[in-house]
Design a protein around this nucleic acid. Sequence first.
DNA 1: ACTATGTACATCGCAATGCAAGGGTTAGGC
DNA 2: GCCTAACCCTTGCATTGCGATGTACATAGT
Lengths: 107, 107
Amino acid sequence: MDKEMMKGSIDLLLMSLIVQRDLYGYEIIQILKQLSDETYEMSEGTLYAALKRLEKKEWLTSYWHATESGRRKYYHITDTGKKELNRKRDNWNWMDSLVRKSSEGLI
Amino acid sequence: MDKEMMKGSIDLLLMSLIVQRDLYGYEIIQILKQLSDETYEMSEGTLYAALKRLEKKEWLTSYWHATESGRRKYYHITDTGKKELNRKRDNWNWMDSLVRKSSEGLI
DNA sequence: ACTATGTACATCGCAATGCAAGGGTTAGGC
DNA sequence: GCCTAACCCTTGCATTGCGATGTACATAGT
């Protein structure tokens, strides 16, 4: 897997998941692992740093929730975060389009 | 445009173009500008640094060519470079698939 | 009681890299 | 002479993915 190719995509991945429902960190790793057919396991260092970053930018908020077996920190997307998610989706599609055009035919 | 989203994609873009025919730096900027409908103009700092990096990794080679109106440094893809390009393409598709799955439905 | 494993969050240091800003050369038009 | 375009290069900065490491608690096996 290309380390550098993850850059910039991680935020999009996280926000794409969290917009669907509030999630906690550890859960996100499991979900991504499953969605990728066990080919990708986001490292905890990457994840928690990214979540913190997104919270600082006010695209996510967090709250603690206690269960019988410990505490979990859930993340929720903000309105600004939703706008940013749309921007990132557009960006992704734009980039995908450019990559495909670049592979096609040069004049 | 998302600066971080370019990371990891730049190599793929450059190699996708150069595999079709040998190109020189300045020309690449023009081509990308055109393919993106004038929405993207790669900065020279980014481009020349990237080309140098790819050459160091032996995915590209370069040669000078003199014309009537000055000199140009052309870039050519190596066999290793072609393999790497395929790897990067697979990676891109894998990532695209993960992004789309992440946007769909959580269980 | 001890040990290992799984769940859960956090921080630090490293390396990679896009970009802005700056520098340099040559050629042609005004 | 001066400006613009074509062409290449370097330095410094900020961002960020990841591995390593630390902490805490619960559960299960021996």
